[in-house]
Computed example of a mutant assay.
Amino acid sequence: MGIAQNQIIHEITPLSDKDCFYIAERYKTQFTYPIHSHSEFELNFTENAAGVRRIVGDSVEVIGDYDLVLITGKDLEHVWEQHNCCSKEIREITIQFSSDLFFKDFINKNQFDSIREMLEKAKKGLAFPMPAILKVYGMLDTLASEKQGFYAVIKFLTILYELSLYVDQASTLSSSSFAKVGIHSDSRRVQKVQEYINSHYKEEIRLNILADMVGMTSVSFSRFFKLRTGKNLSDYIIDIRLGFAIRLLVDSTMSIAEICYECGFNNLSNFNRIFKKKKACSPKAFRENYRKKKKIV
């Protein structure tokens, strides 16, 4: 497998070991920082930035006037780029914090259940809906100017808690396979099938084999799987394969045809059609656009 020569910039954040979080509030006319990753968790808010293109993993979206995203995936690449934004009054608030902020026994307390669930889901990136943004806007607005460190931490924890109440309404950004995040289900049968798909996505996967694995009929299993995951089995398998395919588009020099067959798609034209439907561009265009944002370090 050919490996791409360009690498995502790995950012060394200003977060000190002695601080709970680092916050930067900026007023600017354009986004210039290249695509990057870092080990720290990040909550990023943008205001007056309609037309900016936000990339998180293999998610590419043009945002509106307000955008609030939480990323907890270690080294999940992301960038906000100018694209079609013409605003001269962009405001950005970036909060970076370590996973150590919630030491193990603390985060496992019942009172933190919703925050723990949110941090887990945010490994793929979470974009919050407008009601959530409005709920925390006042606290975000004043957090950078809070002079008392203790109260700043309490305010930040409150922001995280309020956002955690909107997790079910938040949009998951990157695919699991691209973000290299394991998929967890509260159903052992679903988990068993998911693990099988992750290990055999390159091969033909038959419904009856999956159903037999969990002792169900094909019809019953299809209904059960959709109820537990929110996706049809075929759509789920396609999303897993696409995530791996996009990772190869970004990180390798394999041809698109090679990637197509490597990731379980047995027809190149079908792969191109599905990719364009899901990502609004061809695999070739995605690769070219993504690589323009990489820099050698």
Rank of each mutant, 00 (worst) to 15 (best):
E195C: 03
P131K: 14
I23A: 04
A144I: 12
S174H: 03
Q111C: 13
S164F: 06
S185L: 02
E120K: 15
S218G: 01
V153G: 00
K202W: 02
Y196E: 06
L70K: 03
K277N: 09
D235I: 09
R241S: 03
V153D: 01
C281K: 14
K202P: 00
E81I: 04
A49G: 03
E204C: 06
K226A: 05
Q82I: 00
D100P: 01
F286S: 02
K74P: 00
L134S: 12
H200E: 08
K192T: 12
L163N: 03
T158E: 15
I154L: 14
I246S: 05
D113H: 13
I274W: 08
F244M: 10
A49F: 04
R188T: 06
S114A: 11
E42H: 02
D168Q: 13
E77M: 06
A152S: 15
Y66S: 08
K135G: 04
D168P: 01
P129Y: 15
G125W: 12
A132E: 15
T158W: 07
P129M: 11
L70F: 09
L242G: 01
S185V: 06
L248Q: 09
F275M: 11
L160H: 04
F150N: 11
S164K: 09
V181W: 00
S176D: 13
C281R: 10
F225K: 10
